[in-house]
Nucleic acid binder design. Structure first.
Lengths: 227, 227
DNA sequence: TAAATAGTGTCTCTAAGACACTATCAT
DNA sequence: ATGATAGTGTCTTAGAGACACTATTTA
């Protein structure tokens, strides 16, 4: 390190929390109540406190602003262009998380406007700061991770059918998958899903076997994304 | 964002610059001249200036501290545990870069000790701060990227043989690869390498055709890493 | 000559994609 | 019965890995 004096920065965390709602990829967003970017959609987030680590800060802000709790937070990257916040020099560390379809998040004390919003609509809207870029990066990472990890199970309830799991892939990849080949591939990927004795007819048609998430976190063989 | 006042942080960049030197994976490291961690090996890096973006800061620090210039810098992640620097709260954004085998870096004005050091040895040594963790993350990212990108060509001179390219994979993955299958796979991956009319006997044995890097950045089909 | 590396061909096996076919529900 | 979704089987083809074999150099 150089001996240059260290200019002061603010450090924040921002959260990209994704879910599949009504067959659309959705993200938790708030409407900004203050300038700058007043009234514009933004990702939840806030300042890191002096004694907490970055991931703790992300979990705290998520709970405070949206009432949502997630199992796993994954760092997406740091965003620090000068001028990304017009008030001061801010470096934001973005985190990525996933939630199954769930009721409207409990609006906390902080930002009553927290809600699931379709990602496509939000990316066409004018998001605050560089949040559109962060969101795009989060979606891209998510699409890639579906291929070689068991991430899809984070988007469905604890008990689910193969068809519902396929729906997650279809919504996030934005394409239809062959139900028969998908079925075979999921069962062939060791530890992806674990059979339960139960079935359901909630999708209509022949009753579908219900599964739980298996022990694996990496998929082998992967579920490849068609070109 | 919350309306909490924003505690002051210092923001730095750290660099993981990898190369293959003498058939070993090596990283640019300096020896710290000051407390804390005086005399211990560390990654090059330094404070981000008020008006520069993070990647610019990384490129500047790399040039200042080591005299090395690289074509491509890739963000590895943010490291911000409280206590990672005993002097103050510092969030460091780590960048990853690659260089072909080259002479000892020109020691700059700043840290005359900058040198290529074998990664294995450094990870056993006591690196300053959390630099061992950052280095490990950088190596892991590099191993993964060899599979599905043309990254390996960044480790060889502009003109190279398939055998030399295989050497990069073998050193970074720490395993031997079948020369015949590797050869076939490289040529089968469209745009990975571009034939030149020349050959060389610098490896001994039958003269090997020389290639340049091709136009592709992603490999299809990938060069899969054996289990 | 032997030893070394370069390069081609061939065989087997796995898995991806296309899709025929059967199974079991609701209406 | 029809239509929907679930699930199995079969065929073709791409690509991974094992490895026999040939080519061309240096010592």
């Amino acid at each position: 390190m150089t001996k240059t004096t260290h200019p002061p920065f603010a450090v924040t965390v921002d959260l990209v929390v994704l879910s599949v709602v009504d067959d659309e990829l959705a993200v938790l967003a708030i409407d900004r109540g203050e300038v700058p970017f007043k009234g514009r959609p933004a990702l939840p987030g806030g300042f890191v406190l002096p004694k907490e680590d970055l991931e703790q800060a992300a979990a705290r802000e998520l709970a405070e602003e949206t009432g949502v709790e997630v199992q796993h937070l994954e760092q997406l990257g740091a965003y620090g262009d000068p001028g990304r916040d017009p008030r001061m020099r801010v470096v934001s560390v973005a985190y990525l998380a996933f939630a199954p379809e769930m009721p409207v998040p409990l609006a906390g004390t902080d930002a009553a406007a927290a809600a699931w919003r379709p990602v496509d609509g939000l990316l066409s809207a004018d998001m605050a700061f560089d949040h559109a870029r962060i969101l795009r990066d989060g979606v891209e990472r998510t699409r890639a991770k579906l291929e070689y990890t068991t991430l899809a199970t984070a988007f469905v309830p604890s008990v689910f059918t193969i068809g519902e799991l396929r729906g997650v892939y279809e919504v996030i990849w934005g394409m239809e998958l062959d139900p028969r080949n998908f079925h075979r591939k999921v069962l062939a990927s060791a530890g992806f899903v674990k059979e339960t004795p139960r079935t359901t007819t909630r999708g209509g048609g022949r009753p579908a076997r219900l599964y739980r998430a298996g022990a694996a976190t990496e998929l082998f063989p992967p579920i490849q994304r068609p070109a």
